[in-house]
Simulated assay, not measured.
Amino acid sequence: MRETHVNELVELLQLERLEDNLFRGQSRDIGTRFVFGGQVLGQALAAAQQTVDESREAHSLHAYFLRAGDIDAPIVYSVERARDGGSFSARRVVAIQHGQPILNGAISFQVPEKGVEHQSTMPEVPAPEDLEPMHRVPQKELARLPVKLQRWLGSDGPFEFRQVWPRDELHPAKRPPIQHIWFRLTSPIGDSPSLHRALLAYASDFHLIGTATLPHGVSYLTHNIQMASLDHALWFHRPFRVDDWLLYSFDSPTAQGARGLARGQIFSRDGRLVASTAQEGLIRLRGD
């Protein structure tokens, strides 16, 4: 079953080419109300990668989420070839649904080269094998939630997550805005670096803005909260595989003005810093 989910996700990132710089992607209903932001990020990167020479690798992605995506409609990705220099290429990507942009993005590519190196040290945390898989919501409580949320929380997805400090999203306790989560694709895929980068873009949207809710005793399941990603940044540093365990280390330095900022560092099992992320999101508490 998990292999089926992985195959479906890989297929989701295989876009249909309509013109040289125009692509179409489908959406997958995973139980969220709107299209999952990570899906749009992954597909936008997949579209841009098809317009760049294979010798150039994506090293940074910056995107703004403009509108919620419609799960029942395809998404068209328009790529502008902004620049192709001697070492770097730049692409602008607009994701469009129903004639309106839902995401604006910019992606930069570079020919690999050697230079100075340093990195942050990976946090000392238990290995993924020493941690329990994320617990399912008890059936009694799951039955009280909307049908879409039941599907989101009650089924396996293409990624497996193991939290260093588990949290009950239905009854969240207040704690510092720091968390560490191991994750990996649940079955092996091929060796294509561009596919692994698109899949990491997809997964990088999980749990990120939720880090900003930790000190406040709320979560995306709190009945009177409205949460949405506003923007997303992703930097690729070193080679990696998403079908091997990666540690996602999060922190949130600030929340204010109904917005929260969260940052992430992604490490391979052997301690290499392979990617970094940042995201600002809407966190709006409404009256009962």
Rank of each mutant, 00 (worst) to 15 (best):
L247G: 05
A233K: 00
L234K: 04
W165K: 11
E124M: 10
D244M: 01
D191E: 15
L200F: 06
E160K: 04
D205H: 09
D244G: 06
R241E: 04
R162Q: 06
P193K: 03
L131P: 01
Q139T: 12
Y248H: 13
F161N: 11
A201K: 08
P158L: 08
D191A: 13
V164Y: 02
M227N: 06
S252M: 05
H135T: 13
M227D: 01
Q163A: 14
P177K: 05
I225E: 12
L149E: 07
W182I: 02
D244Y: 04
H135V: 10
A233E: 07
L221G: 09
H207N: 14
P123Y: 03
G154R: 10
L185G: 08
E117H: 15
G217D: 11
Q150Y: 07
H207C: 11
P193F: 07
R197A: 14
V164P: 02
Q139H: 05
L145K: 11
R136H: 11
G154M: 05
S204H: 08
L149A: 09
S155R: 15
E132D: 15
F159H: 08
V164L: 03
A173D: 13
P128Y: 00
R197E: 08
I181K: 04
A143V: 09
G210A: 12
P146Q: 07
P133R: 05
A212I: 02
P177V: 02
M227A: 15
Q163C: 10
H207V: 02
H135G: 04
A201Q: 07
P158A: 15
L221P: 05
Q150R: 15
E124N: 10
S219A: 11
K174T: 15
V125T: 14
P193H: 10
Q163F: 14
S187K: 05
P123Q: 11
S249W: 01
L230D: 06
G154V: 06
Q226A: 13
F183S: 12
A203L: 01
I178K: 14
E169Q: 12
A198N: 10
Q150G: 08
A201M: 04
K140D: 15
H216A: 09
M122G: 00
V116G: 02
D231Q: 10
E129W: 01
H207T: 11
H180F: 00
W235D: 11
